[in-house]
Simulated scan of single mutants.
Amino acid sequence: MSRPFAIVTGSSTGIGLELAKRCAKEGYDLLIAADEPEIEHAAASLRAGGTEVQSLQVDLATTEGVDKLYAAAKGRPVDALLANAGRGLGHAFLDQDLGKARQVVDTNIMGTIYLIHKVGNDMRRRNSGRILIVGSIAGFTPGSFQAVYNGTKAFLNSFSFALREELNDTKITVTCLMPGATETEFFRRAEMMDTAVGTAEKDDPAEVANIGFDAMMKGEGDVVSGLKNKVQSAAANVIPAGVLASQHRKMAEPGTAKK
């Protein structure tokens, strides 16, 4: 029997790399992608364990980038799509560079749903496959000083539940992993190292990835990683949005980093 095949996006570092490691451990051949040269280092480390790995440096915020990734699979059936690629952006919305804000939307939303549409249709024709979408507990909270990012995660959280329902009469599973703040390059890249959340202690990306992978393999609809994050996400369902936005300001406003 041939080995299963997985595509993991945003897999040069952080949660994406840990998801790729877990796929490799479970016997998957891999196609991994990210928009930075570090993807080659990630591929080398995965190949050292004997896994067949194809790597691609590509911008998944663009239609062309997604097309290039899809073509790189060369028609091989995708058993698992782990859609992790994402960008963050700190600071007040009106102070942000609109081009950077648009790149967050294009990466987190358009690139993600375009790839899922292409791979998902292939899965539907075979009536087989697993999709893991990395959302966030940020999607439950109006993100003052992260307004665009939190909005994109709210979209992904909602989209995953809707897609799962649409596919409930198939053998395709859709799982949404919703982590909290995790120890990755995210906050540095989002220019948030002068904030309380950027400098606070964070979750271990390997633990987050393992929770998400296990949920995907069980066919679960969603999973929030970590007890603290579970409490926060539950509270967000009952606390007024204005209060949540004010609380988020205390974490994400520039200059709130603890010294």
Rank of each mutant, 00 (worst) to 15 (best):
G242A: 04
K202F: 09
M192I: 09
G139R: 05
R125T: 11
A44C: 12
R164D: 05
N150M: 04
Y149L: 09
L31E: 02
A80Q: 01
H248C: 14
F93K: 05
V174H: 03
T173L: 05
D67S: 14
Y28P: 03
Q103M: 10
D122I: 08
Y149A: 07
D29H: 10
A147H: 05
A181S: 14
G143N: 09
A241T: 07
H91P: 00
M251D: 08
D169I: 04
K100A: 14
A241P: 00
T141A: 02
G75M: 07
G14Y: 00
L82A: 02
A196L: 12
C176P: 05
L81H: 07
I7S: 04
I116W: 01
V134H: 07
K153G: 06
T170D: 03
C23V: 08
K230V: 09
L227C: 10
K153C: 01
A236K: 14
G111F: 01
D35C: 09
T63G: 14
T182R: 03
Q146Y: 05
V104L: 13
G143W: 02
T175V: 10
G90Q: 00
V78L: 01
A80K: 01
A245W: 06
L167E: 01
L227N: 15
S144E: 06
M1W: 07
K118S: 00
A236H: 10
T184K: 06
A252I: 06
L19H: 06
G226N: 03
G255L: 06
M1K: 09
